[in-house]
């Protein structure tokens, strides 16, 4: 039997060396380890041995079989590894070829600014109120202390629907709606579309503003500057500064125009075209809510004080993104819109 096993081992060595793939392995298994295989045939010969020799011979064949099986398993792993490697090689890709695109769009730049400002104010306890685009005279003007034929109406060339109905010229009517419906103290910002009869290189007949209103017991001009300082820093950079100067809005007293240090030259003004050398750019207006407005809305102006402010969203966006023409915001050109991915 030893001889036979030795001869068999030689065959196995030869056969294993020839194995290159899974198919070869299968054949190897069938030839040596299968039911009709060489080793099984040797097992069957066991009966021809004397009874007392059988255990030893059987033992010999068994351990031979186990050894072959172990070698088979080892070869099986080796082949699997080799095949996997070949598969990887076959599937190797040119990683410089373009990706299969699932393209992503973008929000409108004015939406981005609007969302950013709303977040900043939300963090300071402001709710967000979205008003109407068509307003009546009372909310757009009269309740804001701008009665008919008031000279302040001049600056706001109005689109009329009928005598006392118009496209809102500013987001300020939102102040009146909030004062009428919200219970003080409250803080609210009101972003939205506004309309004025103006269409030239720097004006579009529709643009966006954001209005802010704080109603509380003791708010002051210092609080207003604190709020607007926070806004300016959030919108531009941490070292952005704000400056107040007197202005006039019928619905605030005192009223201020708010300049922020120029985002282009950092406030130095030197040779800066954006701020025309002044170091400041005008982006906001605001003030302490006029006592008449508070009284108009049924609150006691001796108990409640208010702050109001308004800014142009398109203008802030144009400054922040370096857009030089407001009409680009409304042309809907893909070449423009795709530049505003977050």
């Amino acid at each position: 039997m030893k001889e036979k096993l030795r001869a068999c081992a030689a065959q196995i060595d030869e056969a294993l060396a020839a194995v290159t793939c899974g198919e070869d392995l299968k054949q190897f298994h069938a030839r040596f380890l299968g039911k009709g295989g060489v080793i099984t045939a040797l097992m069957k010969e066991l009966g021809s041995y004397p009874k007392e020799e059988r255990p030893a011979v059987g033992q010999m064949i068994n351990s031979f079989k186990e050894e072959v099986l172990a070698r088979f398993k080892a070869m099986e792993s080796e082949v699997a590894l080799r095949e996997m490697q070949a598969k990887y090689e076959r599937e190797s890709v040119d990683i410089t070829m373009p990706g299969v695109a699932h393209s992503v769009g973008a929000l409108h730049p004015t939406s981005l600014i609007r969302a950013k400002l709303c977040e900043v104010f939300a963090g300071m306890g402001f709710r967000i109120y979205e008003g109407r685009e068509i307003e009546d005279d009372y909310h757009n003007f009269t309740a804001l202390n701008t009665p008919k034929d008031h000279p302040a109406r001049d600056k706001q060339d109005t689109f009329y629907i009928e005598d006392d109905v118009m496209l809102r010229t500013h987001t300020s009517p939102g102040q009146i709606h909030c004062l009428e419906t919200m219970k003080p103290p409250f803080k609210v910002v009101m972003p939205g579309k506004v309309f004025r009869c103006d269409d030239d290189a720097t004006h579009a007949p529709m643009f966006h503003q954001i209005e802010g209103l704080v109603i509380d017991r003791h708010v002051t001009l210092c609080d207003l500057q604190g709020l607007l300082d926070t806004l300016a820093k959030a919108m531009f950079t941490d070292d952005t500064k704000t400056r107040f100067r007197p202005s006039y809005f019928p619905f605030t007293e005192p009223s201020v125009e708010v300049d922020v240090s120029c985002c282009e030259c950092g406030g130095t003004g030197e040779g800066c075209r954006l701020c025309k050398g002044t170091g400041w750019i005008e982006i906001l207006g605001g003030g302490v809510v006029n006592r008449r407005v508070i009284a108009n809305c049924g609150l006691d102006p001796d108990e409640w004080t208010g702050l109001a402010f308004g800014a142009g969203l398109d203008r802030i966006g144009m400054l922040k993104y370096g857009i030089n023409n407001i009409h680009l915001l409304y042309d809907g050109d893909k070449s423009v819109l795709r530049q505003f991915k977050k």
Binding site: F126, I128, K187, V219, C222, D223, L228, P254
Partner: peptide, 24 residues
Amino acid sequence: IKMYGYEHITPRLMEGSAITAGGY
């Protein structure tokens, strides 16, 4: 304040005001 100078106004953040819940 016009005559005294707006530069005297110092930014302050609603120190004496009520806390309000904000957000969308």
